[in-house]
Measured scan of single mutants.
Amino acid sequence: MTVRVDGVDYEFSSLEEAVRFALKMAKSKGAEVQLHNGTFHVE
């Protein structure tokens, strides 16, 4: 599972870890999280 934040990809071994990271980053940026074909994008 890959989480992309500001064009940088972060790899996670589990969906749970990836979701937690994506939500944490989105909250800190006041951004939204989108899921596309198994890849999260924080914008």
Rank of each mutant, 00 (worst) to 15 (best):
S13F: 09
A26S: 06
H41K: 06
M1Q: 07
V3H: 00
E32W: 14
S28K: 14
D9N: 10
A26E: 11
D6I: 02
R20D: 11
V33P: 03
E43Q: 12
A22L: 05
E16H: 08
E17R: 03
Y10G: 00
E43H: 10
H36S: 09
D9G: 05
S28D: 15
F40Y: 08
V33E: 02
A22Y: 05
T2D: 01
S14W: 03
R20Y: 07
L23D: 12
S28Q: 14
M25D: 02
D9C: 14
E32K: 14
V42P: 07
N37M: 07
E32N: 13
L35C: 15
V19R: 11
G38A: 04
F21R: 00
H36Q: 07
E43K: 10
K29S: 11
F40P: 07
V8C: 14
K29H: 14
E17L: 06
A22G: 01
D6R: 02
K27C: 15
F12Q: 00
S14F: 03
Q34C: 15
E11F: 14
H41Y: 14
E16N: 06
E17I: 02
F40V: 08
S28E: 15
Q34S: 12
F40D: 08
G30L: 07
K27W: 14
S28F: 13
K24T: 11
K29Y: 12
E11V: 13
E16Y: 09
A22D: 00
V8S: 03
E17T: 03
E43M: 14
H41Q: 08
G30M: 04
H36M: 11
E17V: 03
R20K: 12
R4P: 00
A18E: 00
V5D: 01
E17S: 05
G30Y: 08
K29R: 08
V3K: 00
V5P: 00
V5L: 03
L35I: 11
H41V: 14
S28T: 12
F40M: 10
A31S: 08
Y10V: 02
S13P: 11
A22N: 00
K27N: 15
D9M: 11
F12R: 00
F40H: 07
L23F: 09
S14H: 03
V8P: 00
L23C: 14
